[in-house]
């Protein structure tokens, strides 16, 4: 252990400001990178799921339309 008490540790000789500035900014940037990488991953996955749901909806709607057209046609034929 290089320091005898907490004040010594925080002061770092006379270089406390520079040492803590460096370590603080470094770890802030690393955590920001972790956070943004995870968030982007989630966003991309959500976008894929959203698009998938929309496609399903569109397919269903198209099918319904097709069915209604064919039933109305068959009605016309029967009448």
């Amino acid at each position: 252990m290089q320091f005898t008490n907490l004040n010594d540790f925080l002061a770092m000789g006379t270089h406390g400001f520079y040492v803590w500035l460096s370590f603080g900014i470094t770890f802030a940037l690393l955590f920001a990178l972790i956070y943004s990488s995870k968030r982007k991953n989630k966003q991309v996955k959500n976008a894929i799921i959203k698009r998938q749901l929309r496609e399903k909806k569109l397919k269903k709607a198209a099918q319904l339309q097709k069915e209604s057209i064919s039933t109305s046609k068959s009605k016309e034929v029967s009448s």
């Binding site: 252990m1 290089q2 320091f3 540790f9 770092m12 000789g13 006379t14 270089h15 406390g16 520079y18 040492v19 460096s22 370590f23 470094t26």
Partner: peptide
């Protein structure tokens, strides 16, 4: 590394404790 560098590495005889920045600066 963080604990080792901040608490146990001896200070440089010329640069004092600012030498601890070396352990982030040089690897990155």
């Amino acid at each position: 590394g963080l604990v080792w560098v901040l608490l146990f590495v001896p200070a440089d005889y010329q640069q004092g404790n600012s030498f601890r920045i070396f352990y982030i600066h040089v690897p990155t």
